[in-house]
Design a protein around this nucleic acid. Sequence first.
DNA 1: TGCCATTTGTTCGTATGTATC
DNA 2: TGATACATACGAACAAATGGC
Lengths: 243, 243
Amino acid sequence: MIDRYSPEKIYMQIAKAIESDLQEGFEAGDLYLSEKTLTEKFGVNRHTVRRSIEELVKQGVLEKRHGFGTFVAEKRLAYRIKGHQRLTEAVEANGLSVETTVLSKSTILARGSIAENLQLKNGEEVIQVNTLRKIDNKELALISHFLPKAFCPEVLESYESGSLGSFLINVYGIKAKRISSLVSSAMPNASDNFQLGMMGSQPILKVKTLNKDDVSGKIIEYSVSRFRSDMIQLEILINPEQP
Amino acid sequence: MIDRYSPEKIYMQIAKAIESDLQEGFEAGDLYLSEKTLTEKFGVNRHTVRRSIEELVKQGVLEKRHGFGTFVAEKRLAYRIKGHQRLTEAVEANGLSVETTVLSKSTILARGSIAENLQLKNGEEVIQVNTLRKIDNKELALISHFLPKAFCPEVLESYESGSLGSFLINVYGIKAKRISSLVSSAMPNASDNFQLGMMGSQPILKVKTLNKDDVSGKIIEYSVSRFRSDMIQLEILINPEQP
DNA sequence: TGCCATTTGTTCGTATGTATC
DNA sequence: TGATACATACGAACAAATGGC
């Protein structure tokens, strides 16, 4: 099963063997074989097996839980978010509902990129709201919203759940419209990993969004969203109605 | 220096120690201490040092080269690509030039997502061109272009370098216009890593783009770009000229 | 060219810690 | 509490890549 004289590293040979093994007798969510079992099956050291599993975890094929075992990773659908839609609208267009949890609310002082994006002076008060979005009971995104406090102080007191976009419409009659997004990709930090239920081996898609009041044109929200990359694709349509 | 009775793992203590060490006496690009030196400095096993370095590589703080050593990672600028621009235009707008290398050209038969996106039947001939884009002599992106062979067979024979967009203008008088992009994030495979000069610990930003002929409206190119996430941010402006 | 020292990469062995059920 | 499984750490040896001589 293992060719010790091959130029291909043993841990890579095992990783490939496990991958084809998975396609034959395992389904997503199944508990996979223990390190000990694999060690005996392939006749190698436990560290070598661990190295193989590490590769597959990095590829998103397997997931591990300390003290319990190794699983076959769930294959997740990718949701398409159209450029001009807000997250909630886009997902609901797919017939799914988004569950929003407010993780924290606080007042901070504007500085750096937040001040710059909201067009505020350093030191002006900003409301920060952190929310977790779930679809189908699976963590999808962590969003940090930043709003000028002078503009919508009620958010700090009254916003508890649901779409922040809807809240702004209901309370202020303001329809936030996205004017630009900055998309990048990065590895999640420990806190992101924890809150998104990730294993640390998959990247996140980071989207910084600027929303303005559709009527006055004033910037009312800057947000930083961190999406699980295994659950989302952003679809960007370039000026679809223009000649 | 190391507290063996702390609940914090030794490799994490060392990772933090190295990180502050870097801020004091090292600059980006510097060769860092060898594993052997660190082993002696911290009085731990080499595996433990390697585990610490692994963390920092994952964070993008350090980079390694087999047989040579460990480096302090370069801090790279993020280039902003506006939604409606082609890559070459956008980067040149920043006063930089893009170097294009054609890695391979071949004819393949349309199937799956390629057939679907180019609106071709399964089995129709498609030209695939793989290119590497560099800025400032640094690898930025790998792009796989797919074009219907019936439409532009000359690409296979004559396209050797430079922007593919310019080639299409020069030879056919056709201005390709991007109509949609699908953005996602993933870990690179071994080949991507190699060609982009990456170390395997950083994600890539994947952009699937559909381009049509501005005049006839016919779809003429489908491309899949893999950007180094440490060098690029995509800037998306949503219908900027509309009310 | 080839050899050598250095450095990172892989593999084995062993022991102990920690989480889960 | 005990059994099982993954996590951390130490020690040793050899492989593979690099750069200099």
